[in-house]
Amino acid sequence: MEKNMMIGRNIAKLRKQKKMTLRQLAAATGVTQGYLSKLEAGNKIKKPSYEKLNAIAKFFNVDVSYFAAGEDELNKMSQEEKELVFSRNLTLDTIRKADIIDSEGNKITEDEREFMLNALKSYRESKAKFLDELEED
Rank of each mutant, 00 (worst) to 15 (best):
F60C: 08
T91E: 00
F67N: 04
F86P: 03
T109S: 07
I100A: 07
K82S: 07
A41N: 14
D132W: 10
M116A: 13
K127Q: 15
M20N: 05
S65P: 05
L14A: 03
D111V: 12
K44C: 00
A68T: 00
Q24S: 09
D132E: 13
A98Y: 02
L92S: 02
Y50R: 14
D111G: 08
L22H: 01
S126E: 11
Q79T: 15
I101R: 15
M77H: 04
E40P: 02
A12N: 11
D93S: 03
E2A: 10
G34W: 08
F115D: 08
N43Y: 11
F67I: 03
E104G: 12
M77G: 08
M5H: 14
T91I: 03
K47N: 10
S65Y: 05
M116Y: 14
E83Y: 05
R113I: 04
L22I: 09
M1W: 14
K129Y: 15
K47W: 00
K44W: 10
K82T: 12
A69M: 07
N118R: 14
D102L: 04
T32D: 03
I56W: 06
M5T: 07
D132C: 10
I101M: 12
I95C: 01
K107E: 15
Y123Q: 00
Y66C: 03
K44S: 06
F115S: 12
K13V: 00
K46L: 12
R9I: 06
S103D: 13
M5I: 13
E136K: 15
G8R: 03
D102H: 07
N10S: 05
E112N: 10
V64R: 05
L53E: 01
E110H: 00
Y66D: 07
A55N: 11
A41E: 14
R96M: 11
L36R: 03
K127N: 08
E71C: 09
E80R: 14
L36C: 04
A128W: 01
E51M: 09
V62K: 13
K3A: 10
S37Y: 11
K129M: 12
E83D: 15
A119V: 05
E81G: 04
K76N: 13
M20P: 00
K3E: 00
Y123I: 00
L25Y: 06
E2T: 11
V85R: 05
M77L: 08
F115R: 13
Y35D: 01
N75A: 14
A68S: 02
Y66T: 07
E80P: 02
D99G: 10
I11E: 12
D93V: 03
K47M: 09
A68D: 04
A55E: 15
A98I: 08
V62F: 03
R15P: 09
E83L: 09
K3M: 01
L53H: 09
V85D: 05
L36P: 05
E80D: 15
Y50L: 12
P48W: 15
F115E: 09
R88F: 05
L74A: 02
Y66I: 15
N43H: 14
S122V: 09
N10L: 00
G34D: 01
M77A: 06
E104C: 07
I100N: 04
L131W: 03
Y50G: 10
K19C: 04
